[in-house]
Design a protein around this nucleic acid. Sequence first.
RNA 1: GGUUGGGUUGUAGAGUGGUCAAAUACAUCAGACUGUAAAUCUGACGCCUCCGGCUUCGAUGGUUCGAAUCCAUCCCCAACCA
Length: 370
Amino acid sequence: MENFEFVVKHVCKQSGARIGELRTPHGVIETPVFMPVGTVGTVKGVKPEELKELGAQIILSNTYHLFLRPGDKTVKAAGGLHKFMNWDRPILTDSGGFQVFSLSELRKVSDEGVAFRSHLSGEKFFITPEKCMEIQNNLGADIIMAFDECTKAGASYEQAKSACERTTKWLKRCYDAQKNQNQMLFPIIQGNVYKDLREKSLSEVAPYARCGIAIGGLSVGEPKEVMYEILDFLKPKYPENMPRYLMGVGSPDCFVEAVARGVDMMDCVLPTRIARNGTALTKRGKMIVRNACYKEDFTPIEDDCDCYACKNFTKAYIRHLICSDEMLGAQLLSIHNLRFLTRLSEQVKKAIWEDRLLDFKEEFLKDFKW
RNA sequence: GGUUGGGUUGUAGAGUGGUCAAAUACAUCAGACUGUAAAUCUGACGCCUCCGGCUUCGAUGGUUCGAAUCCAUCCCCAACCA
């Protein structure tokens, strides 16, 4: 795969965390990286130029959502997702595997695939691994994800085992169906909180990994400590020379904890979602800017933040926008929250270069309350 | 000055003898949010020593076992007529 390459630039002597560079057809991604989520081909409330300004290197989109609307064929006709949404940096599309989990009321899983009822119209669709690859080929993201079965927190061993087996079988079918040299397929490890299943899943899935491997089925409701334990368990077992992508994580504390456990890539809806609901990320934890105590607080969300919102607006103003249901409030908080994560990733990278990530983690978590 | 309608817990607005501390909406306050069915959802919203008690429905007085609801007087508001 000459279009993709991952190079480890440095390994933190203190933590084992890595600095890496992942080359893709749309540019190089420096890891560890936080990837903003733009489910339907837009990071809600944030323009592409703003994403670039705040340091987003790659964004996520979703197979299931774009398949339903506007349709992958339409995106293809537009010239692919990059052109359609005017984003020339790398894109990763999730496979719809997470929707197998989150839309559990609207779907039925079988070995052949997943029967979905559209959450928009109720119309029935059947998504197979092959169909999933076809859609993702049409969308044209740089990194595409295997179609997996994600289990919920509290799933029984049997359920988790069955989901793992299915995920492996589906991966083989995805692999056979994926022919596009400009798209890198990431396999996904499942196994819920069961270490033997995680290990088995990893060993079954790793042979299919060419330039990246993903850890799925975490941060779905289990305690953070349990997630950290699984990451610790997996850390020495990954295949060499490829980035590890922890799917759906996370909050700033989880981001730092995961990088310290060898994770290179993460994505999460949290920063943009809580922004729309009136909450800002700060180094002390979350700040509910909507709260009355900021009514006449004419200072920025964070004094030392370099984002557009902090450089130009006060908490009192943003609170006013949020309370007035003005869309600019959500936009400004989204920019701030995403910048918070990209800035955090920059700080983390610096600490790795300096071989002091564990020190940084301790310092960061000392003040950060979640 | 007259006629009519009306004054209900922040606002609007139900309720017209007991099941009413009083529907509902909005506002307000607080919380949640982790591969986005989320610009969504949850809770609180008279007071208290809160599995119980206390004080409320313009004011005062009355009828009644019992009143936000019925009667009397007064105060205020709106529309219209002079």
